[in-house]
Protein backbone atom coordinates (compact mmCIF):
# COMPACT_ATOMS: atom_id res chain seq x y z
CA UNK A 1 0.00 0.00 0.00
CA UNK A 2 2.74 2.50 0.79
CA UNK A 3 6.07 2.86 -0.85
CA UNK A 4 7.90 3.40 2.40
CA UNK A 5 11.28 1.76 2.35
CA UNK A 6 12.16 0.06 5.60
CA UNK A 7 15.65 -0.54 4.47
CA UNK A 8 17.40 -3.80 3.94
CA UNK A 9 17.26 -6.69 6.34
CA UNK A 10 14.41 -8.77 7.62
CA UNK A 11 13.76 -6.74 10.75
CA UNK A 12 12.96 -9.75 12.90
CA UNK A 13 12.67 -7.73 16.06
CA UNK A 14 10.18 -5.34 14.51
CA UNK A 15 8.02 -8.10 13.15
CA UNK A 16 8.12 -10.05 16.40
CA UNK A 17 7.00 -6.97 18.30
CA UNK A 18 4.22 -6.45 15.77
CA UNK A 19 2.82 -9.96 16.14
CA UNK A 20 3.07 -9.92 19.92
CA UNK A 21 1.16 -6.64 19.90
CA UNK A 22 -1.56 -8.10 17.70
CA UNK A 23 -1.73 -11.18 19.91
CA UNK A 24 -2.11 -9.20 23.11
CA UNK A 25 -4.83 -7.16 21.44
CA UNK A 26 -6.83 -10.01 20.03
CA UNK A 27 -6.20 -12.99 22.30
CA UNK A 28 -8.84 -11.96 24.84
CA UNK A 29 -11.37 -11.75 22.01
CA UNK A 30 -10.23 -15.08 20.73
CA UNK A 31 -10.68 -16.51 24.21
CA UNK A 32 -14.21 -15.20 24.37
CA UNK A 33 -14.81 -16.64 20.95
CA UNK A 34 -13.62 -20.01 22.17
CA UNK A 35 -15.89 -19.88 25.17
CA UNK A 36 -18.87 -19.25 22.94
CA UNK A 37 -18.48 -22.90 22.03
CA UNK A 38 -18.27 -24.00 25.69
CA UNK A 39 -20.60 -26.78 26.67
CA UNK A 40 -21.52 -25.04 29.91
CA UNK A 41 -22.65 -21.61 30.96
CA UNK A 42 -19.53 -21.15 33.01
CA UNK A 43 -17.08 -18.69 31.49
CA UNK A 44 -14.00 -20.36 32.88
CA UNK A 45 -12.00 -23.56 33.14
CA UNK A 46 -12.24 -26.53 33.47
CA UNK A 47 -13.28 -26.99 29.86
CA UNK A 48 -16.48 -29.00 29.72
CA UNK A 49 -16.71 -29.88 26.14
CA UNK A 50 -17.37 -28.33 22.78
CA UNK A 51 -20.90 -27.42 21.79
CA UNK A 52 -22.77 -25.16 19.43
CA UNK A 53 -25.86 -25.11 21.61
CA UNK A 54 -25.46 -21.48 22.56
CA UNK A 55 -25.63 -20.48 18.94
CA UNK A 56 -28.91 -22.31 18.66
CA UNK A 57 -30.25 -20.62 21.75
CA UNK A 58 -29.12 -17.29 20.39
CA UNK A 59 -30.93 -17.83 17.12
CA UNK A 60 -34.13 -18.51 19.01
CA UNK A 61 -33.82 -15.67 21.48
CA UNK A 62 -36.11 -12.96 20.27
CA UNK A 63 -34.65 -10.39 22.62
CA UNK A 64 -31.19 -10.98 21.24
CA UNK A 65 -32.26 -10.98 17.64
CA UNK A 66 -34.28 -7.81 18.11
CA UNK A 67 -31.25 -6.14 19.59
CA UNK A 68 -29.18 -7.23 16.62
CA UNK A 69 -31.75 -5.86 14.22
CA UNK A 70 -31.88 -2.58 16.12
CA UNK A 71 -28.13 -2.26 15.99
CA UNK A 72 -28.07 -2.91 12.26
CA UNK A 73 -30.77 -0.34 11.60
CA UNK A 74 -29.17 2.27 13.81
CA UNK A 75 -25.73 1.67 12.35
CA UNK A 76 -27.00 1.92 8.80
CA UNK A 77 -28.89 5.14 9.45
CA UNK A 78 -25.89 6.55 11.28
CA UNK A 79 -23.63 5.64 8.39
CA UNK A 80 -25.88 7.39 5.90
CA UNK A 81 -26.40 10.54 7.95
CA UNK A 82 -22.79 10.96 9.07
CA UNK A 83 -21.45 10.29 5.60
CA UNK A 84 -23.67 12.93 4.07
CA UNK A 85 -22.93 15.55 6.72
CA UNK A 86 -19.28 14.59 7.25
CA UNK A 87 -18.49 14.53 3.54
CA UNK A 88 -20.23 17.83 2.91
CA UNK A 89 -18.34 19.47 5.74
CA UNK A 90 -15.05 17.86 4.79
CA UNK A 91 -15.23 18.97 1.18
CA UNK A 92 -16.46 22.44 2.06
CA UNK A 93 -13.72 23.10 4.59
CA UNK A 94 -10.96 21.98 2.31
CA UNK A 95 -12.07 23.08 -1.14
CA UNK A 96 -13.88 26.36 -0.52
CA UNK A 97 -13.25 29.60 1.30
CA UNK A 98 -15.97 31.13 3.39
CA UNK A 99 -16.27 32.98 6.68
CA UNK A 100 -16.60 30.61 9.60
CA UNK A 101 -14.59 27.90 7.89
CA UNK A 102 -12.34 27.36 10.86
CA UNK A 103 -15.32 27.27 13.19
CA UNK A 104 -16.99 24.62 11.09
CA UNK A 105 -13.85 22.52 11.17
CA UNK A 106 -13.58 22.84 14.93
CA UNK A 107 -17.22 21.93 15.44
CA UNK A 108 -16.95 19.02 13.08
CA UNK A 109 -14.03 17.55 14.94
CA UNK A 110 -15.08 18.51 18.46
CA UNK A 111 -16.89 15.24 19.29
CA UNK A 112 -13.55 13.48 19.17
CA UNK A 113 -12.40 15.44 22.17
CA UNK A 114 -15.50 14.90 24.26
CA UNK A 115 -15.82 11.87 26.60
CA UNK A 116 -18.74 9.88 25.27
CA UNK A 117 -20.24 9.34 28.68
CA UNK A 118 -20.42 13.07 29.25
CA UNK A 119 -21.83 13.56 25.77
CA UNK A 120 -24.43 10.88 26.43
CA UNK A 121 -25.69 12.52 29.59
CA UNK A 122 -25.70 15.95 27.96
CA UNK A 123 -27.67 14.68 24.97
CA UNK A 124 -30.15 12.92 27.20
CA UNK A 125 -30.73 16.06 29.23
CA UNK A 126 -31.16 18.04 26.03
CA UNK A 127 -33.70 15.64 24.61
CA UNK A 128 -35.62 15.45 27.86
CA UNK A 129 -35.70 19.22 28.14
CA UNK A 130 -37.03 19.44 24.60
CA UNK A 131 -39.63 16.86 25.41
CA UNK A 132 -38.19 14.27 23.07
CA UNK A 133 -38.36 10.75 24.38
CA UNK A 134 -35.44 8.33 23.95
CA UNK A 135 -35.97 6.21 20.87
CA UNK A 136 -34.18 4.90 17.83
CA UNK A 137 -34.05 8.42 16.45
CA UNK A 138 -32.25 9.81 19.46
CA UNK A 139 -29.71 7.00 19.35
CA UNK A 140 -29.08 7.66 15.67
CA UNK A 141 -28.58 11.33 16.37
CA UNK A 142 -26.14 10.59 19.14
CA UNK A 143 -24.21 8.10 17.05
CA UNK A 144 -24.07 10.44 14.11
CA UNK A 145 -22.54 13.14 16.27
CA UNK A 146 -19.61 10.93 17.17
CA UNK A 147 -19.26 9.36 13.75
CA UNK A 148 -19.19 12.56 11.72
CA UNK A 149 -15.60 13.51 12.67
CA UNK A 150 -14.32 10.24 11.24
CA UNK A 151 -15.98 10.77 7.92
CA UNK A 152 -14.99 14.42 7.89
CA UNK A 153 -11.33 13.62 8.41
CA UNK A 154 -11.24 10.87 5.84
CA UNK A 155 -12.99 12.90 3.18
CA UNK A 156 -11.17 16.15 3.95
CA UNK A 157 -7.79 14.45 3.74
CA UNK A 158 -8.49 13.05 0.35
CA UNK A 159 -10.20 16.21 -0.89
CA UNK A 160 -7.21 18.29 0.20
CA UNK A 161 -4.90 16.24 -1.97
CA UNK A 162 -6.84 16.95 -5.13
CA UNK A 163 -5.27 19.30 -7.62
CA UNK A 164 -6.19 22.82 -6.61
CA UNK A 165 -7.63 23.92 -9.93
CA UNK A 166 -9.95 21.01 -10.36
CA UNK A 167 -13.16 22.87 -9.65
CA UNK A 168 -12.13 25.72 -11.92
CA UNK A 169 -11.27 23.26 -14.67
CA UNK A 170 -14.71 21.72 -14.40
CA UNK A 171 -16.36 25.14 -14.51
CA UNK A 172 -14.21 26.08 -17.48
CA UNK A 173 -15.47 23.02 -19.30
CA UNK A 174 -19.08 23.94 -18.75
CA UNK A 175 -20.10 22.54 -15.36
CA UNK A 176 -22.42 24.50 -13.07
CA UNK A 177 -21.71 24.32 -9.34
CA UNK A 178 -24.07 21.40 -8.96
CA UNK A 179 -22.22 19.40 -11.57
CA UNK A 180 -18.92 20.36 -10.05
CA UNK A 181 -20.03 18.70 -6.83
CA UNK A 182 -21.76 15.70 -8.39
CA UNK A 183 -19.45 14.98 -11.31
CA UNK A 184 -16.10 15.98 -9.91
CA UNK A 185 -15.80 16.42 -6.16
CA UNK A 186 -17.85 13.46 -4.95
CA UNK A 187 -16.53 10.91 -7.43
CA UNK A 188 -13.00 12.07 -6.75
CA UNK A 189 -13.36 11.35 -3.04
CA UNK A 190 -15.32 8.16 -3.48
CA UNK A 191 -12.83 5.84 -1.73
CA UNK A 192 -12.98 8.12 1.29
CA UNK A 193 -16.77 8.05 1.20
CA UNK A 194 -16.82 4.28 1.23
CA UNK A 195 -14.28 3.91 4.00
CA UNK A 196 -15.98 6.70 5.92
CA UNK A 197 -19.39 5.06 5.70
CA UNK A 198 -18.05 1.72 6.82
CA UNK A 199 -16.17 3.35 9.68
CA UNK A 200 -19.28 5.24 10.76
CA UNK A 201 -21.18 1.96 10.71
CA UNK A 202 -18.58 0.32 12.92
CA UNK A 203 -18.43 3.22 15.32
CA UNK A 204 -22.17 3.10 15.72
CA UNK A 205 -22.48 -0.63 15.96
CA UNK A 206 -20.26 -1.16 18.95
CA UNK A 207 -21.07 2.08 20.73
CA UNK A 208 -22.27 1.54 24.28
CA UNK A 209 -22.48 4.70 26.33
CA UNK A 210 -24.63 6.85 24.11
CA UNK A 211 -26.87 3.93 23.31
CA UNK A 212 -27.28 3.10 26.96
CA UNK A 213 -28.61 6.55 27.78
CA UNK A 214 -30.45 7.35 24.61
CA UNK A 215 -32.10 4.08 23.84
CA UNK A 216 -35.78 3.65 24.57
CA UNK A 217 -37.33 0.24 24.77
CA UNK A 218 -35.30 -1.04 21.85
CA UNK A 219 -31.79 -1.72 23.07
CA UNK A 220 -28.92 -2.04 20.65
CA UNK A 221 -26.83 -5.17 20.79
CA UNK A 222 -24.06 -3.79 23.04
CA UNK A 223 -26.65 -2.46 25.46
CA UNK A 224 -28.46 -5.76 25.46
CA UNK A 225 -25.23 -7.60 26.09
CA UNK A 226 -24.25 -5.24 28.86
CA UNK A 227 -27.59 -5.69 30.56
CA UNK A 228 -27.41 -9.41 30.15
CA UNK A 229 -24.29 -9.57 32.25
CA UNK A 230 -26.49 -9.26 35.27
CA UNK A 231 -28.52 -12.21 34.21
CA UNK A 232 -26.15 -15.17 33.95
CA UNK A 233 -28.52 -17.15 31.77
CA UNK A 234 -28.32 -14.72 28.93
CA UNK A 235 -24.59 -14.49 28.79
CA UNK A 236 -23.45 -17.50 26.76
CA UNK A 237 -25.99 -17.03 23.96
CA UNK A 238 -25.24 -13.35 23.85
CA UNK A 239 -21.58 -14.18 23.73
CA UNK A 240 -22.16 -16.59 20.89
CA UNK A 241 -24.09 -14.08 18.85
CA UNK A 242 -21.65 -11.32 19.58
CA UNK A 243 -18.77 -13.49 18.48
CA UNK A 244 -20.49 -14.35 15.24
CA UNK A 245 -21.40 -10.77 14.52
CA UNK A 246 -17.93 -9.56 15.41
CA UNK A 247 -16.33 -11.97 13.04
CA UNK A 248 -18.59 -10.76 10.25
CA UNK A 249 -18.01 -7.10 11.00
CA UNK A 250 -14.27 -7.36 11.40
CA UNK A 251 -14.12 -9.21 8.12
CA UNK A 252 -16.12 -6.47 6.39
CA UNK A 253 -13.88 -3.82 7.86
CA UNK A 254 -10.69 -5.60 6.92
CA UNK A 255 -11.86 -6.33 3.40
CA UNK A 256 -13.01 -2.75 2.89
CA UNK A 257 -9.74 -1.27 4.06
CA UNK A 258 -7.65 -3.68 2.06
CA UNK A 259 -9.63 -3.33 -1.14
CA UNK A 260 -10.63 0.31 -1.02
CA UNK A 261 -7.98 1.63 1.34
CA UNK A 262 -5.23 1.49 -1.24
CA UNK A 263 -7.29 3.79 -3.44
CA UNK A 264 -7.43 6.42 -0.73
CA UNK A 265 -4.19 7.98 -1.86
CA UNK A 266 -4.04 6.87 -5.45
CA UNK A 267 -4.48 9.17 -8.36
CA UNK A 268 -3.93 12.39 -6.52
CA UNK A 269 -1.64 15.38 -7.14
CA UNK A 270 0.06 13.79 -10.10
CA UNK A 271 1.69 17.05 -11.12
CA UNK A 272 4.66 18.68 -9.40
CA UNK A 273 4.48 21.96 -7.55
CA UNK A 274 3.01 25.12 -9.00
CA UNK A 275 5.49 27.66 -10.27
CA UNK A 276 4.55 31.09 -8.94
CA UNK A 277 3.95 33.71 -11.57
Amino acid sequence: MSSFDFGSGRHTTLWTYFWVYIAVLYLPLAVLGIFSFHNSDHLGLPWQGFSTKWYEVALHSSGLLDALRTSLVVATLTAVISTVIGAAAGIAIVRFRFPGRGLLAALGLAPLAVPYLGLAVALLLTFVTLGIKPSLATVVIGHSVIAIPYVLLLVATRAAALSESIEEAATDLGATWLHVILRVQLPAVRPALIVGAVTAFQVSFDELYLSYFLTGFQPTLPVYFFSSLRNGELVPPALALTTAVSVVLVSILVITWVVVGRHLTKGLKTVPRKVSS
Binding site: E164, S165, E168, A188, V275
Partner: peptide
Protein backbone atom coordinates in the same frame (compact mmCIF):
# COMPACT_ATOMS: atom_id res chain seq x y z
CA UNK B 1 -11.18 27.17 -22.42
CA UNK B 2 -8.16 27.08 -20.16
CA UNK B 3 -5.14 24.83 -19.83
CA UNK B 4 -4.12 25.11 -16.19
CA UNK B 5 -0.58 25.15 -14.91
CA UNK B 6 -1.13 22.05 -12.81
CA UNK B 7 -3.24 20.46 -15.57
CA UNK B 8 -6.06 19.71 -13.07
CA UNK B 9 -6.97 16.42 -14.69
CA UNK B 10 -9.84 14.56 -13.01
CA UNK B 11 -8.22 11.65 -11.16
CA UNK B 12 -11.31 9.49 -11.15
Amino acid sequence: NTVFQQYALFPH
